[in-house]
């Protein structure tokens, strides 16, 4: 088993929480894990990425090779495309469709979405709206994590347990809301794969 995942987004959008949820489940399943994060300069509203690697044997490189990612998981549509060189020919692209516009020259969103639709294997979902719909306005990243979970060979219950543990500190209500966001994302991906 191996799952090489590029997590993408803009500094502050919460991609590291996605990594933590999946990572927790991976470690609980006795798998090897490596997770390269971006700290420092680019966190200031720049594009950020994290390389999350899960396998049932020793992992060498902290970086996923170009053309080697099984998944690109993005919380922002343009950022999903920025990392296309990493995606393997059989890989899936999972992305939020709500743009995060903090630059003056953000491309037309229709063109971005058209480019995403050109990808042979992709799931595009309006995770912001879906998070709102389940009453969790800040759970967009967890919706995306749920959609990604369909493509990762780790038991779903382990990931749910991960959410339970990670958000436990913030109370049962927050855990429930995040579970709802997670399941909504998963359902959407299952129905559209």
């Amino acid at each position: 088993m191996k799952s090489d995942i590029i997590l993408a987004g803009v500094g502050g959008q919460g991609i590291l929480t996605i990594a933590t949820v999946i990572g927790y489940a991976a470690v609980e399943s006795g798998l090897y894990l490596k997770q390269a994060e971006v700290h420092g300069m680019s966190q200031r509203g720049g594009n950020v990425q994290s390389h999350l690697r899960i396998a049932d044997k020793e992992i060498f490189s902290d970086l996923i090779p170009d053309g080697g990612a099984d998944l690109i998981v993005s919380v922002e549509p343009m950022e999903a495309l920025r990392y296309l060189p990493y995606l393997s020919p059989q890989g899936w692209l999972i992305t939020n469709t709500t743009p995060f516009k903090n630059i003056p020259n953000y491309p037309e969103i229709d063109k971005i979405l058209a480019e995403i639709n050109k990808q042979p294997r992709h799931i595009a979902l309006d995770a912001d709206a879906m998070a709102k719909a389940v009453g969790n306005v800040r759970g967009m990243n967890i919706v995306i994590a749920g959609a990604a979970s369909v493509f990762i060979d780790i038991p779903f219950e382990k990931m749910e347990a991960g959410i339970g543990t990670i958000f436990a500190r913030k109370g049962a209500d927050v855990v429930e809301k995040n579970l709802a966001a997670f399941r909504a994302g998963r359902k959407q991906a299952e129905e559209n794969r």
Partner: peptide, 17 residues
């Protein structure tokens, strides 16, 4: 070489600010 697809041209840089 096993590299993937190129970055589409329309992608704009997003520098830190």
């Amino acid at each position: 070489d096993i590299g993937g697809a190129p970055i589409p041209d329309l992608i704009a840089p997003r520098p830190p600010a």
